[in-house]
Amino acid sequence: MTNDKAIQAFWNDFKKRQGFTHNNYQAWAFGNTPDMADELADLVVKGIKTATTSARELYEKGEPLPQVGEFNMILDGSGDPVAMTRTVVVETLPYRLVTWEHAWHEGEGDRTLAYWRRVHEAFFKQEYAEAGVTFTENMPCVCEVFELVYKKGD
């Protein structure tokens, strides 16, 4: 569930502050539960979480991959906007080759690769199962690094 009116107001405020005239942004929440969305959005707002990973094979047909320079509005578990990020790096690689550095930038748990693998494997196994496919360590991951450029209350 998203709060379309709050999303538009948040974007308009950010756009005005930046002097933008375009409306090129995506609005989304992390994870698959409201609690997870709240937790991860909070890490973004605090500047701890500066990366994310998605399963390339689970993108909808025709859905574009993240692109360097694009803006993303991060939503909390209630669908309300809390931050704007700008993508600075995008690379696709097999799950088994995701690095400790990317895990650190994801900012979750103790920020180790072991923690990242434990929680992401569980997450991806569930997502793949729901899509009717099997997770493997060779699954292509879209690894995105971003910078926090604006947050609620700025």
Score class of each variant (00 low, 15 high):
1 M>F: 11
2 T>K: 12
2 T>H: 07
4 D>C: 04
4 D>Y: 06
5 K>V: 13
6 A>G: 06
6 A>H: 05
6 A>N: 07
10 F>H: 01
12 N>I: 01
13 D>Q: 14
14 F>A: 06
14 F>T: 06
15 K>Y: 07
15 K>D: 03
16 K>A: 15
17 R>S: 15
20 F>Y: 15
21 T>N: 13
23 N>P: 03
24 N>G: 09
24 N>F: 07
24 N>Q: 13
25 Y>C: 03
25 Y>L: 04
28 W>R: 02
30 F>N: 00
31 G>Q: 05
31 G>P: 02
32 N>M: 12
32 N>V: 13
33 T>I: 12
34 P>T: 08
36 M>V: 13
37 A>V: 07
38 D>Q: 11
39 E>C: 10
39 E>N: 14
39 E>L: 12
40 L>A: 04
40 L>N: 06
42 D>S: 15
44 V>S: 08
46 K>Y: 11
48 I>Y: 10
48 I>L: 15
51 A>M: 09
55 A>R: 06
56 R>W: 07
57 E>G: 05
57 E>Q: 05
59 Y>N: 05
59 Y>D: 04
59 Y>T: 03
60 E>M: 12
60 E>F: 11
61 K>A: 15
61 K>L: 12
61 K>M: 10
61 K>F: 10
62 G>L: 11
64 P>Q: 11
65 L>W: 04
68 V>T: 14
68 V>C: 07
69 G>Q: 10
70 E>Q: 13
70 E>N: 06
71 F>D: 03
73 M>G: 01
76 D>H: 07
76 D>F: 06
76 D>R: 06
77 G>P: 12
78 S>D: 15
78 S>E: 15
79 G>E: 06
81 P>E: 03
83 A>T: 03
84 M>V: 12
84 M>G: 02
85 T>K: 03
86 R>V: 12
87 T>P: 07
88 V>L: 07
89 V>H: 10
90 V>D: 07
92 T>Y: 05
93 L>D: 05
93 L>S: 08
93 L>C: 10
94 P>T: 07
94 P>L: 08
94 P>H: 09
97 L>W: 11
100 W>D: 14
101 E>V: 12
101 E>S: 14
102 H>C: 09
102 H>A: 07
103 A>C: 11
104 W>C: 09
105 H>V: 05
106 E>Y: 08
108 E>D: 14
109 G>N: 15
109 G>W: 14
109 G>R: 15
111 R>H: 15
112 T>R: 14
113 L>Q: 09
114 A>K: 14
115 Y>T: 09
115 Y>V: 10
116 W>T: 04
119 V>Q: 11
121 E>K: 09
122 A>K: 15
124 F>S: 02
124 F>N: 01
125 K>C: 05
126 Q>S: 12
127 E>T: 06
128 Y>D: 04
128 Y>R: 02
128 Y>K: 03
132 G>S: 08
133 V>L: 08
134 T>I: 09
135 F>P: 00
135 F>N: 00
137 E>K: 00
139 M>H: 00
140 P>Q: 03
140 P>S: 00
140 P>G: 01
140 P>L: 02
141 C>T: 05
141 C>A: 11
142 V>I: 13
142 V>C: 04
143 C>H: 00
143 C>V: 10
144 E>F: 03
144 E>K: 02
146 F>D: 00
146 F>P: 00
147 E>F: 01
149 V>N: 01
149 V>R: 01
149 V>F: 02
150 Y>T: 03
151 K>E: 04
151 K>W: 05
152 K>A: 13
152 K>E: 13
152 K>F: 10
152 K>D: 10
154 D>E: 15
